[in-house]
């Protein structure tokens, strides 16, 4: 991974939450392939929390659509998307971040998979979700850190 401005900041200030710098959804930069190289917050992702966000019905709810052998303890794995077993081998961190931030840019413009870090450009959003992304910057990094642990 390239050392970018933001990660350099992270290196200087360590993982201090107070100092975390967040890239707002509208300012996220995608590569031509739809990858996102710069973390959306300077606080490093926490895979254990990412695992929770992945399963949580009001957060990622990734399990609604994806099978994941690492979560055999939980019932009801969905079948809408591919199994995420080994996804940490198939994609780089930047690619995984792009997929979570906005799968329409990273995978397929017509995908059913929601963009998890986008807070504008939707129609008829329920009031309490208006102007908000499904996941926070930290939750995005946590999920990405978790996806990196899914190796065959």
């Amino acid at each position: 991974m390239k050392i970018t401005g933001l990660t350099a900041v992270a290196l200087v200030f360590g993982a201090s939450v107070a100092m975390a710098e967040v890239v707002p959804p509208k300012e996220v930069k995608f590569t031509e392939d739809g990858a996102v190289e710069t973390p959306v917050t300077t606080t490093p992702g926490n895979p254990a929390n990412g695992r929770k966000v992945f399963a949580h019905r009001k957060k990622g709810n990734c399990l609604a659509c994806h099978q994941n052998s690492d979560m055999k303890d939980l019932p009801f794995h969905g079948e809408i998307g591919p199994s995420l077993d080994g996804v940490g081998d198939r994609y780089s961190e930047a690619e995984l971040r792009g997929i979570v931030v906005n799968a329409k840019k990273a995978l397929n413009p017509d995908t059913i998979m929601p963009a998890f870090y986008k807070d504008w450009g939707f129609r008829r959003v329920l009031k309490k979700f208006q102007g908000k992304s499904i996941l926070t910057a930290q939750e995005v990094e946590d999920v990405v850190a978790y996806l990196k642990t899914l190796k065959e």
Partner: peptide
């Protein structure tokens, strides 16, 4: 180009 990969990507 989009990011679809071999494996489940296939």
């Amino acid at each position: 180009m989009k990011l679809t990969r071999i494996g489940a990507g296939l």
